[in-house]
């Protein structure tokens, strides 16, 4: 038996043969403790967070994008996607379909406004 202090979490010190027979008893069963479907637009919106901060709350420079009016945000995103590109944002926004921009605007509007709360 090795005696070093093991790291955190489900591990075992390696040892001889693992009994595997119970694997055959596998049955389908969902995880009851997990949340249901992620909200629409959450994944798409998270692609804004590299620059605009997790949940739209930047730590530096760029503007916060959480908690804005969904219709105004949608209008602004559409404008950026249609005008002659002025900067990197006008290019990035062209990645999304109009329907995706709607989902993003709606989801971002559900997030706290910058500075109002943290992202936990």
């Amino acid at each position: 038996m090795q005696t070093s202090s093991p790291p955190s979490h489900p591990t075992t010190l390696l040892r001889a043969a693992n009994p595997r027979t119970l694997l055959a008893l596998s049955a389908a069963c969902a995880y009851h403790t997990l949340p249901a479907a992620p909200p629409p637009g959450q994944l798409l919106s998270s692609q804004c967070f590299q620059c605009h901060g997790t949940n739209g709350q930047p730590v530096s420079g760029f503007e916060g994008i959480g908690g804005e009016n969904a219709n105004e945000m949608h209008k602004e995103l559409l404008e950026m996607s249609l005008r002659k590109p002025e900067g990197i944002m006008d290019l990035q926004i062209r990645a999304y379909t109009p329907a995706q921009l709607r989902l993003i605007a709606n989801y971002l509007s559900t997030l706290p406004k910058t500075g109002e709360t943290n992202d936990d």
Binding site: L13, L22, A27
Partner: peptide, 28 residues
Amino acid sequence: RDFLTLTGLTSLSLALPRSLRANTTPPH
């Protein structure tokens, strides 16, 4: 975990598919 390792049960319990462990145990 140490106890289970000592009793030789760790490998067995970890080998169980998630669906056979208590479903309150979070997935890893």
